[in-house]
Design a binder for these strands. Structure first.
Lengths: 152, 152
DNA sequence: TCAAATTTAATTGTGCACAATATATTTCTT
DNA sequence: AAGAAATATATTGTGCACAATTAAATTTGA
């Protein structure tokens, strides 16, 4: 038994690499499913948020997905171009940009319902294992949250 | 108890988002540590591989990290520019490009030894929990490996 | 033997991530 | 009410990821 009390530099022992590789592999698994909806994976995440609650601002979307305007602004412009959402300044506060689904954007939800179903098949995990792993990852992310961005 | 026998479209229930968010958070945690070494996170991964075994080709590196030449070629050129490695065609097979550490690249390993140590602190996980999560992620990645890229 | 198929990197193009900065709007302070 | 500080989004620039294509070297197989 060689437990790494001394943290090692071996790639295969790194949690970070297992996480990075699994995340990219997961995205790659979604890719063909999302291609059918003409969405990239981050675009799909934005749509998930909007399907839950429409009319959010860019920063509210950013809070939810942990992405900043540098990522979201061009992504949202592409979704607008695709006719899935609209962007307009709020009249109550002209600094904010409110994102609202178009009818096409709303309707896409039905076709998207297939996606988690297809993925569940590929995963071959029990609901419990799924839930446990997901929640462990959430805890990990919380643990790694930088002291400068505590939840208020 | 509302177990999602019907896979849901709620962001917080997605394994994929927990994975994606945790992976980005992990990279963000490495960032300040690697900045001190003048490395990005993917560059650090390449260095980990080379510190284990020098003189690999671009595709051998790619096999290890699951990255293709479209990602690796420019990344390796930047590491070469930084003086950490050399790239040259193999004379035994001129198609292959062999990557070898420079003395500076080899020496960086000592300073890099701090990195996993610093991270272990932030994680506050038992060795067992660490190992278990890492191996679960490896299994997940294997499970998601597309049928077209089976291990031979 | 030599043309076709295969293999290896590099190149091109798109779309994230994210830091740093800019711009516009609103709120705070006096 | 005027200027300063704070807030929200957009812009710019760098570096991945990854698909698709290209180019060059090697292997293959009639």
């Amino acid at each position: 038994m060689n437990k790494p009390l001394t943290p090692s530099l071996l790639l295969d022992e790194q949690l970070c690499f297992a996480l990075y590789a699994a995340s990219r592999r997961m995205t790659a698994t979604y890719r063909p499913l999302l291609e059918a909806l003409d969405l990239t994976y981050p675009q799909y995440l934005v749509m998930l948020v909007l399907w839950e609650r429409d009319g959010l601002t860019v920063s509210e979307l950013g809070d939810r997905l942990q992405l900043d305007s540098g990522t979201l602004t061009p992504l949202l412009k592409r979704l607008q171009q695709a006719g899935l959402l609209g962007r307009r300044r709020r009249q109550s506060d002209e600094r904010e940009v409110e994102i609202t689904l178009t009818e096409a954007g709303d309707k896409l939800r039905e076709r998207a319902a297939e996606v988690p179903r297809c993925l569940a098949e590929k995963l071959c995990m029990s609901v419990d294992a799924f839930t446990r792993l997901r929640d462990e990852l959430k805890n990990l992310a919380t643990q790694l949250a930088s002291p400068t961005d505590q939840r208020e």
